[in-house]
Design a protein around this nucleic acid. Structure first.
Lengths: 203, 203
DNA sequence: AGGGTTATATACCGCTCGTTATGAAAACCG
DNA sequence: CGGTTTTCATAACGAGCGGTATATAACCCT
């Protein structure tokens, strides 16, 4: 039972910053996917050696999960904020614009960490896939709940289908990430968002 | 310069059917992706040995491209048919329903061959990625042209943005494939299509 | 100063990858 | 039948993979 930065460590202090290393690892996983990121790629980007990586993070899979935590915390926070919008349309607009901004950020890799790693690759990555899908599922439930609330508030018509609307908006977000990672320009993505918003009724 | 099945071959005849083997290879690439599909996976599914594979198809990359041809020819033909629908809305509906049917077919792998292989993995697969993206781009241009025609025909308002509409409908198709490959049920996907169609104006 | 503990650097492990060299087997020709 | 050509089966190649054994270096405590 140890608390962070409680006392000075006993042995030789580590020569790298764990958070910086994790940020570097995230960039690699983000741009290459779990299986495409080799330990050589990771250690080179993190500036540490293999034993240091294993001592600090466990193994490749544990490192990926910690990087995924960081990704959700720093890059997907727009989702939580979007759900606070007053209307269902506001939620949808905030989600789409948030996804667009993510692709516009030129300092980050293109595409979406979750989308990249949710497609099946080797069997070894099955647990990774499940981990990614699990998190996506929880995000989906949050959006469904928000749209259900909108319906009870009369913000959405009683005939609206919260599950369908959620799958629809998630499909658009996935499309933004996929096309953003496939060479689409910012102008292309803006047109996509613009068109999507024009479709949503009751402006 | 040889024509297919013109004369009897000279040497020892091959003991497997090339088309059947290619179909089996397609299933493997489809469900595991290019990098996730090992030669062991492929040869086992195709029922042939490694040298036979290399003699008949060249190498792994050439085999993938031939499998991709087969995929487009047999599984993506709904796109070409959809473009023949009389109205823009009919085109959109045919595209969405076609994508839905693809995910409903339980005898085929889930997800979309193109989507799976358009996300970056290792560096070795860069040429594969480009090949897949190239084909997606040509499909996109065909849809754009169809929507532009619809606008000149007065079927779409003059304010409509064919590029934006195309990116929008492709995003939805990608979302259908992605969610279909991530455990969504058929009912889920039907709701997604239903919601998407409800959004498209001028029913 | 000296023992205990932890991080570092180097080198290596077994395994799987895509690809190919090798030789035997099966068809045709003459 | 021998000669030619093509395919088949076995086994191996070098390279890269994720993960680790070993030994050295740097810190704390007494």
């Amino acid at each position: 039972m140890k608390t962070a930065a409680c006392t000075v460590a006993k042995g030789r202090p580590r020569e790298f910053d764990v958070d910086e290393a994790l940020t570097a690892a995230l960039r690699i996983f983000w741009s290459k996917g779990y299986e495409g990121a080799s330990l050589t790629d990771l250690t080179e980007a993190m500036g540490i050696t293999r034993p240091s990586l294993y001592a600090a993070f466990g193994n490749k899979e544990a490192l990926f999960c910690k990087a995924l935590d960081l990704y959700e915390r720093e890059k997907l926070c727009y989702i939580g904020r979007a759900l606070e919008a007053p209307t269902a349309r506001g939620v949808a607009e905030a989600l789409l614009r948030g996804a667009l901004e993510r692709q516009r950020d030129t300092s980050d890799p293109k595409g979406c960490m979750g989308v990249i790693n949710s497609v099946a690759c080797g069997v070894e990555a099955e647990s990774i896939r499940e981990e990614v899908l699990k998190r996506g599922e929880s995000a989906k439930r949050a959006i469904v709940a928000r749209f259900e609330r909108a319906r009870t508030e009369g913000d959405l018509p009683g005939t609206a289908d919260p599950e369908g609307l959620t799958a629809y908006i998630i499909a658009l977000i996935q499309g933004i990430a996929l096309q953003g990672g496939s060479g689409a320009t910012c102008a292309d993505l803006e047109r996509l968002v613009q068109t999507s918003l024009a479709m949503w009724p009751a402006r």
